[in-house]
Design a protein around this nucleic acid. Structure first.
Length: 884
RNA sequence: GCCGGGGUGGCGGAAUUGGUAGACGCAAGGGACUUAAAAUCCCUCGGUUACUAAAGUGACCGUGCCGGUUCGAUUCCGGCCCUCGGCACCA
């Protein structure tokens, strides 16, 4: 049987082509990462997927096809291209599926990834599979554990604004104590002697206040369905982002990464990267930087510190509000108020902060019975407790300025607390009795002592400077972002490499002892106890340290976002078992030149990966501070019914089905042709017909090439043919580089339409065989990255290039002189309205064009009887006659 | 409420720096081929309207709305409206 496909009813047999070329390309190793030292590099990366049992839909192709086209393009432009793929294989969905199927997660993962890989090969995604990685293998997670330990052994030195080894902090504590160190709130200052006097365990506890990876008791988000805690980033509207369950508040010992230490740099460096504005905005919003001041108010329990972004409204503070969790609550509560306060605090405790914020609007609160002294005017103001003040932000206490803050206003009105205007707007005079809402906007300071009359634009700065001078307050920046909670009480994740002991406190596992292997066990269902199922496996938990100390292993695992925070580094040297990544490889390949994936990871993966990169940079492991130079988000692909594709709706379109019906080349071309890369689009069955027709037309032209007759050659026709050929090269090149794949395909369609214009039954008119061939070759090479199969078939079988694959050819460059034309069309307008066209020589001077335009009958008609005021001539484009 | 995108034919969308709005494709209508259908090929295709026997030739309107800048605005500026996405008691 011949492998040469036959045209069937003018349609080409895509299946035979695909079966023919796929194995040959594999043999050629076309997709191997380049390593020519003389070439520049491109690292083109897709978000590595979470393999699930559902497999890939055409929606995933919206991600993988464009990056594949770009990878193929840059290979042919002479770059060393690394385009790898791997699996974010740990995590809840696989584990939940495994529990349901009574299988082992590792076995399911193998099954799922094999299917993904098959589908990716089906659509001809040009991944270098020799670099495939899987985050759930010990070869990989060993190094996730290693990075965890690097963070554990580090602290953030605010003075140098970078992370440093914790050993350097210990040295400093021994020498000078905490004298020069900025202490987190609630941490006691120490002299060198006091430090020395601490036990090993106490020292460790103290250092936990500084480490980039630390364990602390904290009120956390507990997902009762997934039976694990979640990071703040994983809670959306008070619900777990995957399970949809309302999260509960639990106080548990948990592991955190101190991402807040990097808040400032994470925000500032956004300015240096080429990312979608929306993602940057989401990260800025999540980081939530606010500038303001901290001010102390005297109370019975000591100085009550508050944070405010409006120090200019200090004179308008008429009461204070503490968060229910504030440490002063007990002391400030008078016996008369005690019962009421305790009841309120208990109720608040039951809800997580996020759920509390998401659900409540109506203000609630209770009076403590105590008062504070406002340091700017020595006024005595009542102290209340309310859950609209969050312990996790600022100091957990606020001064309430009801006249100029909506929340305080609502609270004051509800509990009948006084309101005082201290900012007078220009537009109106605020009268307390008539106010229905706060005035949080601009104005002039009043009722504020010697600051009266200070205008809005100066007020905050002037007051802050005065607070600092008089020692009443300090300038301060706060962030909404909290530390990243990494513990999960689940089996299918990277074990946290820590051992707990009674005498030595927590002991990190030594690097050479890694990995801490996840035990292969038959039962791993999550528990309701707040403890990981690993805690039930004695062989895993109990350990004797080298010095004989008895210990218990940490049984929490890391959330999967730890795995994905460094995988892009691993691809540079995926097989080494000596290090997490080889420096020379990382220095060559990183940062990632193009990173493509969905927008849903804006404040999760994309934030975490930036944080790890910065930390690794500070510790000297990588030379760059941003992992992804260019980020692009593909638009969502909706199904034919305008809904998201999902199994439950039964509207998922698989690449398998499309490949079966229309072929992979048509699938790829249609994915790109649908619309702009980053716009939401809809899959339409009729739409793919257009690109199918286009490929068939190309096939027809190619197939008849050997037999067709070339008649009536003309210079003019040939020049026109050559012109559109070079124009197409120019357009396709520009469009691929700029992610405008839809117009790249439109350009190719126009070129093919021109082929058809030259064509008659078994004849090509006006163009020589040599020129026709040149055009067909150019078309084939431009189409190759988009439709690799049909292009290869035409290249080798029709055009007879036996030397190698079309995918190994150097990209075409266009000839500017071929684009030149002798005659051009000049548009003639009268008062900006189109009235005529002129065809003139390209060399026609401005004057002669002007004369021609004025002489035009159609123009004359419109200027008759009017004065010509001005004539504007735009060279090579238009003439506009202005009449009055 | 705040932040970030978008609003262009029946539909998806084009329009490198302000310069012929609607490329390319889908759908639709007409025609050719065919016993027929599919496929294929050719033509028409923003709206209103005038002239003409007709092929055709014009005019006016038109890129969410109102206004501005300009010889000229889908493009720039100001003010609105609608819509999608994100955040939302963060002091």
């Amino acid at each position: 049987m011949s492998t040469k496909p036959e045209a069937i009813d003018g349609r080409y047999d895509f299946k035979t082509l695909e079966a023919k070329w796929r194995p040959l390309w594999e043999k050629l190793g076309l997709y191997q990462t380049g390593n020519d030292p003389n070439k520049p590099k491109k690292y083109i990366l897709d978000f590595f997927p979470y393999p699930s049992g559902e497999g890939l839909s055409v929606g995933h192709c919206r991600n993988y096809v464009p990056t594949d086209v770009i990878s193929r393009y840059y290979r042919s432009r002479g770059f060393n291209v690394m385009h790898p793929m791997g699996w974010d294989a740990f995590g809840l969905p696989t584990e939940n599926a495994a529990i349901k199927l009574k299988a082992k997660p590792a076995e399911l993962t193998a099954k799922f990834t094999a299917n993904y890989k098959r589908q990716m090969s089906l659509i001809a995604a040009s991944y270098d599979w020799s670099r495939e990685i899987n985050s759930s293998t010990p070869e990989y997670y060993r190094w996730t554990q290693w990075i965890f330990l690097q963070l554990y052994h580090s602290w953030y030195d605010q003075r140098k604004n970078r992370a440093r080894p914790i050993a350097e902090l210990e040295k400093e504590l021994a020498a000078t104590g905490t004298k020069n160190i900025s202490l987190p709130s609630g941490v006691q200052a120490l002299t060198p002697q006091e430090w020395q006097a601490l036990s090993i365990k106490q020292k460790k506890d103290f250092l936990s206040n500084f480490r980039l990876a630390y364990r602390a008791a904290s009120a956390v988000n507990w997902d009762p369905v997934e039976k694990t805690v979640l990071a703040n980033e994983e809670v959306v509207d008070g619900r777990g982002w995957r399970s949809g369950a309302l999260v509960e508040r639990k106080v548990l010992q948990q592991w955190f990464f101190r991402i807040t230490a990097y808040a400032d740099r994470l925000e500032k460096d956004l300015d240096t990267i080429d990312w979608p504005e929306s993602i940057k905005a989401m990260q800025r919003n999540w980081i939530g930087r606010s500038e303001g001041a901290e001010v102390d108010f005297k109370t019975e329990a000591g100085n009550l510190r508050v944070f405010t972004t409006r120090p200019d409204t200090l004179w308008g503070a008429t009461f204070m509000v503490l968060s229910p969790e504030h440490p002063f609550v007990a002391q400030l509560t008078t016996s008369a108020q005690r019962a009421q306060v305790e009841q309120y605090v208990a109720a608040a405790k039951a809800q997580s902060e996020i759920a509390r914020a998401a659900e409540e609007r109506e203000k609630t609160g209770v009076f403590t019975g105590s008062y504070a002294i406002n340091p700017v005017n020595d006024e005595k103001i009542p102290i209340w407790i309310a859950d609209y003040v969050l312990m996790g932000y600022g100091t957990g206490a606020i001064m309430a300025v009801p006249a100029h803050d909506e929340r305080d206003f609502a609270f004051a009105r509800k509990f009948n607390l006084p309101i005082r205007v201290v900012i007078q707007p220009k537009e109106q005079k605020l009268l307390v009795d008539e106010m229905t809402e706060a005035w949080p906007h601009d104005g002039v300071m009043i009722n504020s002592g010697h600051f009266d009359g200070t205008p809005a634009d100066e007020a905050v700065n002037k007051v802050t400077a005065w607070l600092e001078q008089t020692g009443k307050g300090v300038r301060r920046v706060n962030y909404k972002m909290r530390d990243w909670l990494i513990s999960r009480q689940r089996y299918w994740g990277t074990p946290i490499p820590i051992v707990h002991t009674d005498t030595l406190g927590e002991v990190p596992v030594a690097t050479e002892q890694l990995p801490v292997v996840l035990p292969d066990v038959p039962n791993y269902e999550p528990t309701d106890t707040g403890e990981s199922p690993l805690a039930l496996i004695d062989e895993f938990v109990n350990i004797t340290l080298p010095d004989g100390t008895q210990g218990r292993r940490e049984t929490d695992t890391m959330g999967t976002f730890a795995c994905s925070s460094w995988y892009f580094l691993r691809f540079a040297s995926p097989r080494t078992d000596k290090v997490a990544f080889e420096n020379d490889q990382v220095n060559y390949w990183l940062p990632v030149d193009l990173y493509v994936g969905g927008a849903e990871h804006a404040v999760m993966h994309l934030l975490y990966a930036r944080f790890w990169t910065k930390a690794l940079h500070d510790l000297g492991y990588v030379p760059f501070v941003e992992p992804f130079t260019v980020l692009r988000n593909q638009g969502m692909l909706l199904s034919y019914d305008n809904q998201k594709m999902s199994k439950s709706r039964g509207n998922v379109i698989t690449p398998d089905a499309v490949a079966e019906a229309q072929g992979v080349d048509a699938l790829r071309a249609y994915i790109l042709f649908l619309g702009p890369f980053d716009a939401e689009s809809k899959w339409e069955e009729t739409g793919i017909k257009g690109v199918s027709r286009f490929l068939n037309r190309y096939w027809v032209v190619a197939q008849e090439f050997a037999s067709v007759k070339f008649v009536e050659p003309s210079d003019e026709r040939e020049r026109a043919f050559k012109r559109i050929m070079h124009a197409t090269i120019k357009r396709v090149t520009h469009d691929i580089e700029n992610f405008q794949f839809n117009t790249a395909i439109a350009a190719l369609m126009e070129f093919m339409n021109f082929f058809y214009e030259c064509r008659r039954e078994q004849e090509v008119v006006g163009v020589s065989q040599a020129m026709w061939r040149e055009g067909l070759e150019a078309f084939t090479r431009l189409l190759a990255p988009i439709c690799p199969f049909i292009a290869e078939e035409v290249w080798q079988e029709v055009l007879g290039h036996k030397g190698g694959s079309v995918h190994q050819q150097t990209w075409l460059s266009y000839d500017e002189s071929a684009l030149a034309v002798d005659e051009i069309t000049i548009v003639v307008q009268v008062n900006g309205k189109l009235r005529d066209n002129l065809t003139v020589s390209i060399n026609a001077g401005e004057d002669s064009i002007k004369q021609l335009a004025l002489a035009s009958e159609k123009v004359q008609k419109f200027i008759a009887g009017k004065a010509v005021k001005k004539v504007i001539v735009v060279p090579k484009k238009l003439v506009n006659v202005v009449v009055g």
